[in-house]
Design a protein around this nucleic acid. Structure first.
Lengths: 159, 159
DNA sequence: ACTTAACCCAGCAAAATAGTCAACTATTCC
DNA sequence: GGAATAGTTGACTATTTTGCTGGGTTAAGT
């Protein structure tokens, strides 16, 4: 499991797609403009996302990309793994043919950690992120509302 | 928060250092041999780890590197961040000067996720990993012991 | 003094990243 | 049917990162 800017671009684009998904497909041009990612780079990323059955491409006018499933059914780990290179993972290729026991020891430790990160990100969906943001947004508005009310109270008090 | 092979090298090397930390400092040459990482690359990584006050370098014969704190006090996130480039973080530099509201929206979502990953890895120490492995190791040995006992039982039964 | 090993630095080849350019295909709308 | 739309594909490029080689200098122990 790697976390690079490439994966970030993919997740960002997918979040944008999920957020703007109404009935109509979303064009890459729109996403490119909103997220300031080059169109051709997005094309590369979405070619992989399509092969991974995460998005569906719709051709022709009014076309674009749609999520293949509900945003709650698409997790972050699969988006990142779709665009990442397969990551040769190990030097001993799981065969455990390291020189002695020591190399495989720390190697095994790292693999365990990597697995944990994958599990963690696999438990978070695009829908979760959008929802959490929505909650934050609402919370922030309520916070502002509270301030406005407080302000009004002070105005009445001073009047 | 990025997760690249560079960070993996750093964590692997730190795990090796933590595992082999007795009284004496551990030389980079030893780590290089055990983990098959080039000495010069390790030097680069440890220069950063030293600047981040994660390890202490001891010069001269019998020298090497020591952990600056107990393995339980060093978390994975700080090891990775020590060797990673500062990661220009955002395009709008936290100023929020994106074109409209939309870019900052998904951007904010990603930053939130990144923060979660940092928090997650920040909660795991080198000591945790070593301990977990130790538990696995013990568990595996007990498993083997059980098989041996079972084997002995079968031998007695057939005799 | 000599050895050891951290420290420091310049450079370098391979890979990954991010992007451009161009041609082609399927679809829909007129 | 023809034009416009938008995905699809591939080759090609610039930049950065990665991982390493090899040269040195400095501090500390014997």
């Amino acid at each position: 499991m790697r976390l690079t800017t490439k994966g970030r671009y993919a997740v960002t684009a997918m979040l944008d797609l999920a957020f703007h998904s109404q009935k109509k497909p979303v064009t890459l041009t729109d996403i490119a403009n909103r997220q300031t990612i080059s169109l051709s780079y997005l094309e590369q990323l979405f070619a992989r996302l399509r092969k991974a059955d995460i998005v569906i491409g719709v051709r022709g006018p009014g076309g674009g990309y749609k999520l293949s499933r509900a945003a709650g059914k698409i997790n972050i780990a699969e988006v990142i793994e779709a665009v990442d290179e397969p990551l040769d993972s190990t030097k001993c290729g799981g065969e455990g043919n390291c020189q002695n026991n020591q190399p495989c020891l720390t190697h095994e430790l790292w693999m365990g950690l990597s697995e944990q990160i994958r599990g963690y990100l696999g438990g978070i969906s695009l829908g979760d992120l959008l929802e959490r943001h929505e909650i934050q947004h609402v919370a922030k508005r309520q916070e502002n509302d509270a301030k406005v009310i407080e302000l009004h109270r002070q105005e009445r008090a001073s009047a």
